[in-house]
Amino acid sequence: MSYDIDIKKVRRNCYRQSKVRGEFMLQIRVPGGVIDAKYLSFFQHIAETWGNGEFHLGVKQTISIPGIKYEYIDEVNKYIRPYIEEIEVNLCGVDMVVDDDGYPTIGARNIMACIGNRHCIKANIDTTDLARKIEKIIFPSDYHIKLNISGCPNDCAKAHVSDIGIIGITKTEYDYERCIGCKKCVEACAHHATRVLSVEKGKIVKDTCCCVGCGECVLVCPTGAWTRNPKKFYRVLIGGRTGKQTPRMGKIFLNWVTEDVVLGVLKNWETFSAYVMNNKPEYIHGGHLIDRVGYNKFKEMILKDVKLNPEAMVAQRVLWTETEYRSNFNVKPVTQR
């Protein structure tokens, strides 16, 4: 069969081109990766009615339904209207008009998150709640952003390889009187984290500088001498990416910042992206945008009107470590950017 399809228009609509001509895979957003189980039958209906009967757990936590023929896209878009309304507008409070045309853009990708402290014993934050708050800020935007949220520095949600990575951390507090000097926290820190604890005169001493804020000391403390400061803190990583050319780990941009700071930073993302790309959204990883204008310009723009909390720490500079598949990859002729 002959098709005449504007692939880019369809992709913007969250349908990905298949190797089978005329077939597409719909990527349904699940911000933070958690929604009511009742939607399973909804996905099943799409897969069995218009798709090939299968679904893929998308690597960015979308529910992806392959094998949808181009001619069914209008029908599918009508069918997913209430879902978009319920998830995006009602659940996340996204400011958007929902119509029969499906998702308005694929720019800001689905927000990925681990299960967080709704379930996990290690987590320091409610990742689902944060993902929904962030969805309201970044969606719908044609400017590309990949954003991963992890509940603790274990980073199961791979904040280290996303444009913006957010990790829930905890400022642990020590009650000298309750401590029995059993060294369980010292062992846990050395085993799981950064070896910042040691025993001195029967009590614990901490090298606060290198504490990653994981909370392992709290988990293992038998007497409740270590507790979390009830205030939530976050580490923000930037510029991580996967890819064929220069994959790299994200680096610390902010440490010990509050949720207000995280949300404030994300509110500036679109403006920053638009500035770098002269108001023409392209599919480019955030790290490349930072590279183009330099970290200092990024920092200036992304922290505009953001009031940093007193505990906050900001990176003075970023030393990227890229995987260079070819050495001197970054050394290019003057004719290339």
Binding site: N117, N124, R228
Partner: peptide, 8 residues
Amino acid sequence: EKRGRYSD
């Protein structure tokens, strides 16, 4: 409040 072994 929020001083238990697990977050929140």
